[in-house]
């Protein structure tokens, strides 16, 4: 399937994960050419049937990734797709960030896992914001535009209760290395608009679970945070450096602490109004 600028080919030793992915990714195009291949393989021939265990492989892979039980096949595929992009993608500067847009102007929300960026993006998508992605912001080094990469959102543990009505979901995966996980497909309109980039207008570094606080960031601090948030900044060489310095120079950046989702959404929208 194709997500934004990237086509994936997923192969599996079992039928079930493919069927689950097919349903979760129902609204995405099925291109003939795929940029990256992901394989869900049995760790050994007998583990195809007895306590089936999935190893993620593909064009790019990590030698020490631990296998997952077959019931978590969708998670394995999602991890495989993330891995291909994180290790292979060089056409865009990648930032660990969720992205939402109003019209053709976008907010990048960058943070470590658990900072709440996925939840914020999903909540904003219910309030008229276009969802561009919750995993990677893809910045075109030539134009500075953020290209949508609207993969399904993976919600974990306490945020599972926030899944909006009417959103397409994958199976509930219990007992994964990240706890309980469920994938939620973005609204069909967000998928339909996934070839329309947006210009970054605001950069937020959110942190969930802290008393509300807002602070501006010095350019040097922003730059350091962005280099840490990027998986391919070094690998892109000079083009990566140029994309990052332009982003830092042109887009205001703030650090936002928020105690809960409602407060977070309200703070983001207030920042947007004040731009």
């Amino acid at each position: 399937m194709r997500v934004g600028p990237v086509g994936f080919r997923i192969g599996s030793d079992w039928h079930a994960p493919i069927a689950a992915l097919d349903a979760l990714y129902r609204d995405y195009p099925r291109p003939e050419f795929a940029d990256y291949s992901v394989r869900l393989e049995a760790v050994s021939p007998w583990r195809r049937r007895v306590r089936p265990s999935v190893r993620v492989a593909g064009d790019y892979w990590l030698p020490d990734a631990s296998p997952l039980p077959l019931a978590q096949g969708v998670l394995a595929a999602e991890m495989g797709m993330n891995l291909q992009v994180a290790l292979g993608h060089r056409r865009h500067l990648l930032l660990h960030a969720a992205v939402v847009a109003r019209g053709d102007r976008a907010i990048l929300m960058s943070g470590v896992s658990g900072a709440g960026k996925s939840t914020l993006a999903l909540m904003l998508s219910q309030r008229g914001w276009r969802f561009l992605g919750d995993e990677f912001a893809m910045i075109d080094p030539d134009t500075g535009l953020a290209h949508p990469f609207p993969r399904p959102v993976s919600l974990k543990n306490e945020s599972l209760s926030l899944i909006p009505k009417g959103y397409r979901t994958g199976p509930l995966l219990t007992g994964t290395p990240k706890g309980d996980v469920r994938n939620v497909a973005p609204p069909a309109a967000a998928i339909a608009a996934m070839d329309e980039p947006a210009r970054p207008a605001l950069l937020i570094f959110p942190r969930f679970g802290f008393p509300s606080a807002l602070s501006g960031l010095a350019p040097t601090e922003t730059f350091m945070r962005l280099t840490q948030a990027s998986t391919n900044y070094v690998a892109m060489g000079e083009a990566g450096f140029r994309a990052l310095t332009r982003l830092r120079a042109q887009v205001p950046a703030v650090a936002l602490d928020y105690p809960d989702g409602e407060a977070g959404v309200a703070a983001v929208e207030a920042l947007w109004e004040a731009l």
Binding site: G7, D35, R91, A235, G237
Partner: peptide, 20 residues
């Protein structure tokens, strides 16, 4: 084909970085 051009461009970026 367009997608192939993009993927090959990526391989050239990688090679340039490997060289550097």
């Amino acid at each position: 084909p367009g997608g192939v051009v993009g993927a090959l461009a990526e391989a050239r970026i990688d090679a340039a970085e490997a060289r550097r």
